[in-house]
């Protein structure tokens, strides 16, 4: 790393920017998580169900993210496909209290991963709503999503709570690191 790049990284000028796609079932907490990741002055007080999609920007360590917050409602899920091609990371949010629909989440997750546009980008799975007493442990969510079958892409599962912010900094750090690696690998 040269002098200028070190300098620029200190001032945050030369930060890389990347696109991530945030998907998951409806009511999983995607918009709430993104709201919590934003800087405090840009946060909204009330999160409403997303219609179609919204774009949110926030910054991680060394990376500026533009997150495509996709609506998780059944009728909008077919819009997800259009954004895989330009995404450099996937954030998949699961409601860890919704046991019934974990199978649906799994189905949707594997549909994403099997999609032809989906590259070997880092995959961050957030087992959200961990503050709720009826939430499933992260290991169980991992099993139920069939993550042990996943090969050939960097992935992690993180227990989070968008309400109190638990697990979010760690997730962001992982995502920044892996996306940087992915982008370096792509460019070289």
């Amino acid at each position: 790393m040269g002098f200028f790049s070190t300098l620029s990284s200190i001032f945050g000028v030369g930060k890389k920017s990347c696109n991530i796609v945030v998907v998951g079932l409806d009511n999983a907490g995607k918009s709430t998580i993104l709201n919590a990741l934003r800087s405090e002055d840009t946060r909204v007080s009330q999160v409403v169900p997303t219609v179609g999609m919204t774009v949110t920007t926030f910054s991680g360590t060394g990376v500026n993210f533009s997150a495509f917050d996709m609506s998780g409602q059944g009728k909008y899920r077919n819009l997800w496909d259009a954004y895989y091609a330009k995404a450099e990371g996937i954030m998949f949010v699961v409601d860890s209290t919704d046991r019934l629909r974990l199978s649906v989440a799994r189905d949707e997750l594997w549909m994403i991963l099997d999609h032809k546009d989906c590259k070997k980008v880092p995959l961050l799975i957030l087992s959200n709503k961990s503050d709720r007493p009826d939430s499933l442990p992260v290991g169980e969510v991992s099993n139920l999503l069939g993550l042990d079958l996943m090969r050939n892409r960097p992935w992690t599962i993180q227990q989070t709570s968008a309400i109190n912010g638990n697990g979010l900094p760690h997730s962001l750090e992982w995502l920044s690191k892996n996306i940087k690696e992915y982008m370096n690998g792509e460019s070289s």
Binding site: T97, L100, V104, R106, D107, W110, G146, L149
Partner: peptide, 23 residues
């Protein structure tokens, strides 16, 4: 409610499957 039931899951549904087993 789904929260109270013990549940098992089978493997991923086949690509042509129309139903998935939830609980």
């Amino acid at each position: 409610s789904p929260m109270q039931s013990i549940f098992q899951m089978s493997l991923l549904p086949a690509p042509g499957a129309r139903w998935m087993s939830a609980l």
